[in-house]
């Protein structure tokens, strides 16, 4: 048993040597992929002597499923506006009253009384953006502001298209494209959207939350995508451009909240307050390339970002944009079934 005991001793030493690295506190964040600035986390760790872990997810739906399963161990979650009511109704969020926090005064007034969390009792705004279409203009020379790039793709894009696994965003865009309104109860329209999606799927390469590098290296040339992510790709491959479908596109906001069964509540509250500081909000924007909702952050933001084409909605397209909401439960159920049909 000499060998085994030696190995056990080695393990004990390893475990022991790992311990001093532990900070006084802990904070476990569950966020979308490539969405948490590393320098922001480092700053928070140093300011509050807290060890932060960041775990990433692909979509609101899979994050919710993981939280529902229990035993997740996370403190912080970043749900999109449309899914926040679901979290609240299912008792998954802590009523942490961000509106009482010291930095809350920095939140721009139009983002305070929002439909999904009136008066901000649960959530803090993270960033907001638009969902449109990103395409490689080296390959595709046509109109940018159309969802046809995804749903009726020209031959040069076939097999090079990605669709992000974000149910409501994809379905809303498809319903708009076939002439309906998001969350419509009109079954004929829903069926049309369903059939359009199934037909288009044959031309897609993937339904994935792919690494940016797949676009930069042109393994993929088009995607339903978000403005900020698109801007980050353009920085590395100038061929890529972002368009907003004339038939309708989404404006969304993601929100930071504390989970009901969080273990590190005090650190989580510190983090929420930390995010409402203008300098930190600017760090988030500079990394994610999305706009934030914090007054005074512009001064610290990258000037290139403030004038990035992805961040301004052209005047003639303003009327096509609509804010993303959760659909009524019966519509949401049909959405889910269409989505399951599409992704399986």
């Amino acid at each position: 048993m000499k060998f085994a005991s030696r190995m056990a001793a080695a393990t004990a030493i390893l475990v022991a040597s790992a311990l001093p690295a532990l900070a006084a506190g802990q904070l476990n964040i569950f966020n979308f992929g490539l969405y948490t600035p590393p320098d922001l986390i480092k700053k928070f760790e140093q300011t509050y002597d807290v060890k932060v872990t960041v775990t990433e997810y692909d979509s609101n739906e899979s994050a919710l499923a993981k939280i529902q399963a229990g035993g997740h161990g996370f403190d912080i979650i970043v749900p999109s506006a449309y899914i926040v009511p679901t979290y609240i109704e299912n008792g998954l969020l802590m009523k942490s009253e961000p509106n009482q926090m010291s930095n809350f005064k920095n939140v721009k007034s139009e983002w305070v009384d929002v439909a999904w969390d009136k008066g901000r009792h649960y959530t803090v705004p993270y960033v907001w953006g638009t969902t449109g279409v990103m395409v490689n203009t080296k390959v595709y020379k046509g109109d940018l502001n159309t969802a046809a790039i995804i749903f009726d793709p020209p031959p040069e894009l076939k097999g090079k298209i990605n669709v992000v696994p974000s149910m409501n965003e994809v379905l809303d865009m498809a319903i708009n494209y076939v002439g309906g309104e998001a969350c419509t109860t009109d079954k004929a329209i829903l069926k049309k959207a369903h059939d359009k999606l199934m037909e288009a799927k044959a031309s897609w390469a993937s339904i994935d939350y792919p690494s940016f590098e797949k676009f930069i290296k042109e393994d993929l040339n088009a995607s339903i995508f978000w403005n900020g992510a698109s801007s980050r790709i353009r920085a590395e491959n100038p061929g890529f451009a972002f368009g907003l479908p004339k038939t309708g596109f989404l404006i969304w906001q993601d929100n930071v909240a504390i989970l009901k069964d969080a273990k590190n509540v005090e650190n989580a509250k510190l983090f929420l307050n930390f995010l409402m500081d203008p300098e930190n909000a600017a760090m988030v924007s500079n990394y994610t390339r999305y706009g934030n909702s914090i007054t005074g952050s512009e001064a610290k933001m990258d000037p290139n970002l403030l004038k990035a084409p992805e961040l301004t909605i052209p005047a003639d397209l303003k009327s096509a944009g609509h804010f993303q909401t959760a659909c009524p439960p019966d519509v949401q159920q049909i959405y889910t079934r269409i989505w399951t049909d599409l992704t399986k």
Partner: peptide, 21 residues
């Protein structure tokens, strides 16, 4: 895995999906 329990393969998989450098 719980938060902070990434192993080499899970870390690699995460990076592969986000950040292939």
């Amino acid at each position: 895995k719980s938060p902070g329990q990434d192993t080499l393969p899970t870390y690699l998989m995460g990076e592969l999906k986000r950040n292939l450098t």
